[in-house]
Amino acid sequence: MKFLIALSKIDRRVVYLLLALAVVVPMIVSFNVRFHVDRSTRDLFEAVDRIPPGGQPLMLVFDYDPQIMPELDPMATAILRHCFARGIRVVGVTTGAQGAALGERAMARAAAEHGKRIGEDYCYFGYKLFLSMIYFGENARRALPVDHYGRPFDSLPMMRGIRNYDDIPLVIDLAGSSILNSWIVYMGARYHVRLGAGVTAVMAPDFYQFLQTGQLAGQLSGMKGAAEYEQLVVERGYAPAKGLASRAMNAISASHLLLIALIVMGNVGYFAARRAKPKNPQGGA
């Protein structure tokens, strides 16, 4: 009985150590696991896949900062690999100052992998005020007069013919804050923009209602969403191997299993302690 009670009193340093091991070991010892793909991930993948190659560009919005980069960066990479492998043009932008360098890095890496050229296959506009992105719905050229590197809008061949959101078949907002709500309210409601989203696992339930109403074409939820997207990209032959999210998902699986085990142990200890407690025959406190 003492052993069972001790299960609910594990020192927090032991918990920390176990969690650290559960995260680090699966990142080093890689194993390939197949994921169950959620409908929201599949919907987003299909929405991207339906964009004709070499035509109107997809807009990818890097609305995240370094704190949540581990969850959202793999999403950006997976989506960019999908687009570039399929020949879909991409316009990158961010409405958060901290997302500018992260977006630039993600786009440059994916473009280099697929031999894509800036200005022709992809454009990066860096940090723009959210208001500029609202104004994009009225006049794209005036909302984004120069790209991240100072090149005028008109000098970018792939931006010719882009007037406003009517010429963008899909906007995917990778968001780590409630800014996604503003995209849905302003761009979705006013300009009827077709929106997709990538959000952290914690935020995901806040946007399920928009999936149900069709205001979001699809959604990637946390690392799991990124890993599922990577799996679809590989299954459809757009990439030879899965990426970082799938490896990180192993770490998340191990840490979740550890958490489940800890909670079970805690409850076993709790009930053992309750059973061992001497009962007061008078029923008083």
């Binding site: 918990v15 805690g266 409850n267 709790y270 009930f271």
Partner: peptide
């Protein structure tokens, strides 16, 4: 920034172990 955010996982693990009781 990432390290600061990652520390949360340790507190959450410890807290759920202690508080998640039936």
């Amino acid at each position: 920034d990432s390290a600061m955010f990652a520390i949360l996982a340790f507190y959450m693990a410890s807290a759920s172990y202690r508080a998640f009781r039936a």
